[in-house]
Design a protein around this nucleic acid. Structure first.
Lengths: 90, 90, 90, 90
DNA sequence: CTGCCATTTTACCGGC
DNA sequence: GCCGGTAAAATGGCAG
């Protein structure tokens, strides 16, 4: 791995900067989320409850995804996992 | 606030969905960040060190921001926080 | 784990009480801190600024600690973390 | 408030340092608390539940204190708030 | 699977 | 007395 400040250092720097850029983006979105909660609050909704609703729906979605994954497993197990032949899928 | 399912319910639903959309985006970016770390690891860098570097740089930036905030506080405290009157400021 | 009220229950109770005692102490110190801020305010200092100063100094210390931690990581990474052999270290 | 670095500066510095000392103490106690939880965990207790117990007892204590405060209020209101004469108080 | 770290949530404190 | 913001706690997620 070359000398310090060499080609590896450049690569590392590049990776770090990409990460920092992404974290910045993520921070911006987090800020947007806070804004939406604030908007809800201003409209008279209870922020704490809004958070609970979001969390609950997330769990429900995870449940559904798990169910689906389980179904897929079964389908594979009994050889029903091929692509549907000539249907305009969904 | 109308009845359940009324106009307020619509608003709430809209807010919730915007939040969910944003959280999804945020999750995607978090995933991208993980990918970059994985890329660094594959290139032979120590992920733990990468994280430490990122953390340190973040703290240094925060330090600078706080320094500035402190200066602002001082300015306010001694009444130097008014808009500059007739300077070509900026 | 025995029956409720058994030996385990005694142990748990003891732990809980130790925690409660410690939290009480901690609360007392928090109160002392508030007193010092109040004293500063009474002496004409701006509490907000005092807090900012404390926060900034804390961050600067954390920075230094992280620098050191990073150095340690580097040392480990390049195998320089062994005990010095024949030095009167320490 | 004298010049910067003057007597006021000394006072401020002193206050800041007292606060930092106290915060350090507080941090030490927080660390002790973590240790006790860890000890509980090692003994097979569920830390999350331990925390709930502590929180619950704190609330119950707050309730009792409030009841007591209310009783005191009543006592004062009806002139029963004098020191007990010749009892080994409590 | 365990311990660590980041994020989220809760509680506190000062200001209005 | 309430609200807003700031610091601490706690939970959840990720790497090792």
């Amino acid at each position: 791995m070359a000398q310090v400040g060499g080609i590896a250092g450049e690569h590392l720097r590049s990776l770090i900067e990409r990460i920092e850029r992404l974290e910045e983006e993520r921070g911006g979105i987090a800020s947007d989320i806070r804004d939406v909660y604030a908007e809800g609050k201003a409209a008279g909704f209870d922020v704490k409850i809004m958070r609970q609703v979001v969390r609950l729906r997330k769990m429900e979605k995870a449940d559904r995804d798990e169910q689906e994954a389980l179904l897929d497993l079964y389908r594979h197990a009994i050889g029903m996992d091929m692509e549907p032949a000539a249907t305009a899928a969904e």
